[in-house]
């Protein structure tokens, strides 16, 4: 954006409700935390009774009693959605933490442990990036026999490459920075430099990488589960709900897929927004932008 020249010296001061980027980010974080907590707590607190089969209340559209309606077995869709989200986020969290750790270790090793290690890891990164996530994920999950364990390990093993590449580049860049070279001539050990110079630079990258990875992991979990290769059908995952609902969409029961899908979308978008905002805020050239 090119700012226009304001003609004249009179300063225009338009007072209106306006939040700067940091305030907006903080607000999104607070909102996201509330959503997260209520979903997790809600998932644990909600009455299992409500998802018991109740053939008297089948296929009801949304109402005050059943906010998201009920399904073909009379189960309350609101309860199912919350439970599904709770499960999805748990899977997403474990997957994203695992993937971030893998990225950190491989990125660091690749940047510091010499040429052979670097070549091997770069090759691995390229290999994983050249195949779509979903395909490798399905392969790994399938090989491990599906289910909770298969999908979690699959998620961990597939989402690290781009972050590992970022970390590798970051470490290499800092290692060759003048201030690190000076530090060496000041007599500091490699370990001291790693702890004081390099690692602090990686924290924001890791945080952002994690934040942006999390929604991806959730979406991929839902996608694989939707395809029937992930979590087993008796678990109330969002992917399961969505895939089951597809059959009933044509009979006009839109609420079965609409609400769970919307909730998933909101959560994914919230995390993406936080990640993007963080990225803008730590970029020194853009940190002060509106």
């Amino acid at each position: 954006m090119i700012p226009g020249l304001k003609i004249g010296t009179k300063e225009e001061k338009v007072k209106r409700f306006y939040l700067n980027r940091r305030q907006k980010t903080l607000l999104t974080i607070v909102v996201a935390t509330i959503i997260l907590l209520s979903v997790v707590v809600g998932g644990a607190m909600l009455d299992q009774e409500r998802i018991a089969t109740n053939l008297n209340e089948r296929n009801l559209p949304p109402s005050l009693k059943h906010l998201f309606g009920t399904d073909w077995l009379g189960r309350d869709m609101f309860t199912r959605t919350i439970m599904g989200l709770s499960l999805s986020m748990g899977v997403g969290l474990i997957g994203a933490i695992g993937s971030t750790s893998i990225a950190l270790v491989l990125g660091m090793v690749s940047a510091t442990m010499g040429k052979m290690a670097d070549r091997l890891i770069t090759w691995l990164i390229d290999l994983f990036l050249s195949v779509p996530h979903l395909v490798t994920l399905i392969l790994i999950a399938f090989t491990l026999g599906g289910g909770f364990k298969g999908i979690v390990i699959g998620l961990m093993l597939t989402h690290w490459p781009s972050l590992a590449r970022v970390i590798r580049a970051e470490v290499m860049q800092i290692r060759s920075a003048e201030y690190v070279q000076i530090s060496q001539q000041m007599g500091k050990s490699s370990w001291w430099i790693a702890v004081h110079h390099i690692f602090p630079h990686l924290i924001p990258q890791l945080l952002i990488g994690f934040m942006l990875m999390f929604p991806h992991v959730i979406l991929h979990e839902a996608a694989v589960t939707f395809l029937g290769l992930g979590l087993s059908p008796h678990e109330p995952a969002i992917g399961i709900i969505l895939s089951e609902s597809m059959k009933y969409l044509s009979s006009g029961m839109w609420w079965l897929a609409f609400f769970p899908g919307l909730c998933l979308l909101i959560i994914v978008r919230t995390f993406e927004t936080i990640g993007e905002n963080f990225r803008m805020l730590i970029d020194p050239t853009r940190a002060n932008e509106k």
């Binding site: 920075a177 003048e178 201030y179 000076i182 001539q185 000041m186 007599g187 110079h197």
Partner: peptide, 16 residues
């Protein structure tokens, strides 16, 4: 500590 110390041209790059 190296007994010969070098000062660079661009101080912005020489500090973390």
């Amino acid at each position: 500590f190296h007994p010969v110390q070098l000062i660079f041209q661009h101080p912005e790059k020489a500090v973390n």
